[in-house]
């Protein structure tokens, strides 16, 4: 199993721990990763709004880099997977758009052919062979009540994100993260409005306060269920919960704080990696106390 690793903008700079955890976990689970000279995806929450044609052409350029190596592209972020999967879907299905984009790319020595798939780390880890290996390699359980937050762009719109699995469904409830975490002894815990937006895109463009109001609402539902930690698969959602709780506490005087983990950090801990290996020391809300309670140090 071999993929072109698409790091995106935020993870390698803001959260190198997520990248380290992912690389170590993949190595242990026999998933080979190849680094290529990718650039920004660009995100569905910014460049797609500014200039659709540029957005599509730039996404196509990234797809071409992986195509030229004959590798499927593995993303670590809900935004990146949304852009790259949607662009791949559009360009494979529309002759006119593919012709247009290829005209842009001609001068830069690329040509989109439509020979690869785009996938996300969660989907890669969820494959049978990887899960079997995980069961075999796992050295400890992580017995915490964890709430999963998937991030809207990871699974919506389902027609584009999961075309094969869902024929023409308009809505789709993802379960892969909950299932995967239960393998490592986590107690995946349901909560109200689980698929509510985290609020992050609002901060980037316009109105941080409105964004944090959504985050606050979501956290209320999470507190209701006595959830001990959150698990996410996107650096923007992570920042919204990790940083967001600190910012919100300044206004609301809320005392409860829930640590957030990136999925591969939790899997890494179960594989015996140390909290430092997976970069837990840079989190704003420290999971140290929570982890020492279950003898992970």
């Amino acid at each position: 199993m071999k993929y072109a690793l698409y790091l995106g903008c935020a993870i390698p700079i803001k959260y190198p721990g997520f990248e380290a955890a992912t690389r170590l976990v993949c190595e242990r689970l026999n998933v080979e990763l190849v680094d290529l000279p990718f650039s920004c995806c660009p995100p569905p929450t910014s460049m797609k709004l500014v200039h659709y044609d540029s957005w599509l052409a730039l996404a196509a350029r990234n797809l071409c880099l992986a195509e030229e190596q004959g590798l499927d592209l593995l993303t670590l972020c809900s935004g990146c997977v949304n852009t790259l999967k949607e662009a791949n879907h559009i360009l494979k299905n529309s002759d006119s758009k593919r012709r247009r984009v290829n005209k842009f790319l001609e001068g830069h020595n690329h040509r989109f052919k439509g020979t690869i798939e785009v996938t996300h780390i969660l989907d890669v880890l969820y494959q049978d062979t990887v899960v079997e290996k995980l069961l075999h390699e796992k050295v400890r359980d992580i017995p915490l009540r964890v709430g999963c937050h998937y991030g809207c762009h990871y699974f919506r719109p389902p027609k584009v994100m999961y075309p094969g699995e869902l024929s023409d469904a308009e809505s789709h409830v993802p379960v892969k993260m909950d299932h995967l975490l239960s393998i490592i002894g986590v107690e995946p815990t349901e909560y109200s409005r689980k698929f509510l937006c985290c609020g992050s895109p609002l901060g980037a463009n316009m109105d941080q306060d409105a964004g944090y109001s959504i985050t606050r609402q979501k956290l209320e539902y999470i507190h209701e269920r006595n959830i001990q930690a959150l698990s996410v698969v996107c650096p923007s959602c992570f920042e919204q919960f990790d940083m967001g709780q600190i910012v919100l506490a300044r206004k609301t005087k809320e005392k409860r704080r829930i640590p957030t983990f990136y999925l591969t950090q939790l899997v890494g801990l179960a594989l015996g990696l140390s909290p430092k290996d997976v970069g837990l020391d840079v989190h704003r809300i420290k999971p140290k106390k929570l982890l020492s309670g279950i003898d992970v140090a």
Partner: peptide
């Protein structure tokens, strides 16, 4: 118009 978070919540119920 810039407040849309593009979460696709509206598309799901339409």
């Amino acid at each position: 118009i810039w407040l849309c978070s593009s979460c696709y919540g509206c598309s799901e119920v339409c």
